[in-house]
Amino acid sequence: MRPSEAGYLRVSEIFFSLQGETSRVGLPTVFVRLTGCPLRCGYCDTEYAFQGGDRISIVDILTKVASYGTRYVTVTGGEPLAQKECLALLSLLCEAHYSVSLETSGALDVSAVDPCVSKILDIKTPGSGEAERNRWSNLDCLTSQDEVKFVLCDETDYLWAVEVLRERRLDRICPVLFSPVYGKLDPAALAAWVLRDHLPVRVQVQLHKLLWGEGPGR
Rank of each mutant, 00 (worst) to 15 (best):
Q19A: 15
G20L: 10
E21L: 14
S23I: 06
S23M: 10
S23Q: 07
S23C: 07
V25Y: 07
L27K: 14
L27Q: 11
P28V: 07
P28T: 02
T29D: 11
T29W: 13
F31E: 12
V32H: 09
L34C: 12
T35Q: 03
T35G: 02
G36A: 04
C37V: 05
R40L: 08
C41S: 11
Y43M: 06
Y43C: 10
C44H: 04
T46R: 06
E47K: 15
Y48G: 01
Y48M: 01
Y48L: 03
A49Q: 01
A49P: 11
Q51D: 09
G53Y: 04
D54V: 08
D54K: 15
D54H: 08
R55Y: 06
I56K: 11
S57W: 03
S57Q: 06
I61M: 06
I61F: 03
K64S: 13
K64D: 14
A66I: 02
Y68P: 07
T74V: 13
V75D: 12
T76I: 02
P80H: 03
Q83F: 08
E85C: 00
E85A: 08
C86H: 04
C86I: 04
L89C: 10
L89G: 06
S91A: 15
S91V: 04
C94P: 00
C94H: 00
H97P: 01
S99R: 13
V100Y: 13
L102Q: 00
E103Y: 07
T104L: 08
G106P: 13
A107S: 15
L108S: 09
S111C: 08
V113C: 13
V113Y: 12
D114I: 11
P115A: 13
V117R: 08
I120R: 01
L121C: 00
P126C: 01
P126Q: 01
G127S: 10
G129F: 00
G129D: 00
E130C: 06
E132N: 02
W136M: 04
S137A: 13
N138P: 05
D140L: 07
D140P: 00
D140A: 11
D140S: 06
T143E: 08
T143K: 06
E147N: 10
V148G: 10
K149V: 11
